[in-house]
Nucleic acid binder design. Structure first.
Lengths: 324, 324
DNA sequence: CCCTATAATGCTCAGTTTGAGCAAAAGGAG
DNA sequence: CTCCTTTTGCTCAAACTGAGCATTATAGGG
């Protein structure tokens, strides 16, 4: 605790995962990168002028998206492992860390810089809304061949891990395990980043429709962290509403919840949940463009933010259980 | 992003909240500080030799406590607000951030440096195990006088916030809101740190038995963050077992859960929960020193770490509801 | 104007989980 | 052998969940 004059000083980057939902599509704000995979998360250095970490992030993201960030939450702070590999010339003398944030915005208007992308373009295996996605089968097949014959204990453990994280057989699909699944695929060499980090060429059998779009550095891992966190958080905190316009229908709310969690929800139970939690109140108006019976418009009751306990949206899939 | 050569570089501190439980007392590792309040959390600079952030922390904490850290989790990364105030001469040119970690150890043997302290010495109002603690009444009284007469809207909001965070009246006591409660007390000027940060003298009516022991800088806030996280986490991840010896009885496990969550648990239901989750298995031996019927010794089933869903210890108070 | 398709909304019901408590079992102390 | 203490086994009602049937309110086509 005494005085230490010769500590190393490091560069600090603030990286943002900015999320919005547009008509059932969960979107993440991306920018062009000059490096290998061309897609990156928006990121900027911590500047001396910034009052605090969060306000620093807030100001420059709002400048770029032109929309107020409804919600900002710190995700994780990463050491420089990946960064060191990106810039090998800088060497280990110059450390860097990146502090990552999750931000939610209510609008998907085109940002000044960068563009919105469907987050399932990066994680095709995560979208279970319309049943088993096409990417799942080939992935599981390759995972199995990576695990190998169940004879050796290592292989057995690999197989068991794949079974549990991907919900194979009688293991339930847990939509929150986005990061675990990505890390398993990384270890198994099924995403191109694994080879970029090793400095080798990814095998040609990897294709983006199955493995998802790659991102610069460890940005896809950061995005996976954000999705995991968000899928968990909507269950116990009313963050879902940060993604909604001021007035909306319960169906639209459900569509948003499904977009994030990637599983279909039981409509009646979803409404029951929202109703009994007292999360919304009717505006008095109705939406006529439903295609069927008009839907009542509601608004979020900001007051409940404090109330608790657990004013979240517990998502429960229509068909709980496992996917093949 | 492009090359930025003139970013500011900052100092990075790694701060640890090391937790252990000894016979129903939750303990936190503290060290002596030379600054104003004499108590601090162990903390060290990020050094160039450190492979990763976590391993850096791990190595020097293990060196100090002489016990392996069973579990390490990143808590939060703080900007330099508090630090700037600690060392005003350094000015805003030299930023500093501290990355904080929560660590759990199974033993409470005296560490080489520092000492274990009952964490309720810092948060006397958080221990509801034996009913309403003595510190609660005077605190609530002062909170009310801080909020003022309910006439103005500001006062009304303050009162409502106090009601919800402290579970006054018909609001339920939520043991996880440790940080919110501390921040409310800070704003209300009921903890000495509030005055230290402002550079003024704390009023003499503040006494440690009610306001808890103060700590250096924002360390008590960090500890509150750690306790909040831990109280939440034991409900959905089996971290509780990181604090236990290899073999233990269910009562000892319950004592530990109660120590952390600060509320009394219903014994039979607690056992039912542990049993049906398959979290432990019998060793075959019994503990005879119970004072009554001998208790079977059990051990944690490490395998379940992967299994899920939610292999945690849902704590549910004996008497749910509110405290006066 | 009636019929049909479509979605919103209302309600029921069985299975499970949760909170609470009674009672028996198995030791030690006097 | 009896009392005291703690562990352990078991029951029961209330609340919660997952699932599905039924009704209502619009639009569009005959």
């Amino acid at each position: 605790m005494g005085s230490r004059d010769r500590e190393s000083r490091v560069r600090v980057d603030l990286t943002a995962v900015v999320i919005a939902v547009r008509e059932g599509t969960p979107c993440v704000l991306t920018v062009e990168a000059s490096a290998q995979p061309a897609i990156a998360l928006p990121s900027g250095p911590l500047e001396p002028g910034h009052q605090s970490l969060q306000s620093g992030l807030r100001s420059w993201v709002e400048r770029q998206t032109q929309h107020p960030l409804g919600y900002v939450e710190q995700l994780y702070t990463f050491g420089d492992r990946a960064t060191a590999q990106l810039e090998p010339d800088v060497a280990s003398q110059q450390k860097a860390i990146s502090i990552t944030y999750l931000a939610l915005v209510a609008s998907t208007d085109p940002p000044r810089q960068g563009r919105w992308r469907n987050w399932y373009d990066f994680f095709p295996w995560e979208d279970m809304r319309a049943g088993v996605p096409a990417a799942r089968d080939p992935l599981l097949k390759r995972l199995k061949s990576w695990a190998g014959k169940p004879g050796r204990p290592t292989n057995k453990r690999r197989l068991e891990r794949a079974r549990l994280t991907f919900g194979i057989g009688d293991a339930p699909w847990d939509e929150e395990r986005v990061l675990e699944r990505y890390e398993l695929l990384y270890e198994a060499g099924l995403v191109p980043e694994a080879f970029v980090d090793r400095g080798t060429q990814p095998p040609s059998r990897i294709n983006n429709a199955v493995s998802g779009l790659p991102m610069v550095s460890d940005h896809r891992r950061i995005l996976a962290t954000a999705i995991s966190r968000l899928r968990a958080k909507i269950k116990y905190r009313p963050v879902l509403f940060e993604l909604m316009p001021p007035a909306f229908t319960l169906s639209e709310l459900q569509k948003t919840a499904e977009a994030l969690s990637g599983i279909p929800l039981h409509k009646q139970n979803f409404r029951r949940l929202i109703a009994q939690q007292g999360l919304v109140e009717e505006t008095g108006e109705v939406a006529m463009d439903t295609g069927g019976r008009p839907a009542k418009l509601v608004r979020f009751r900001r007051e409940v933010t404090l109330e608790r306990p657990a004013p979240g949206v517990r998502v429960s899939a229509t068909r709980r259980g496992s996917y093949p």
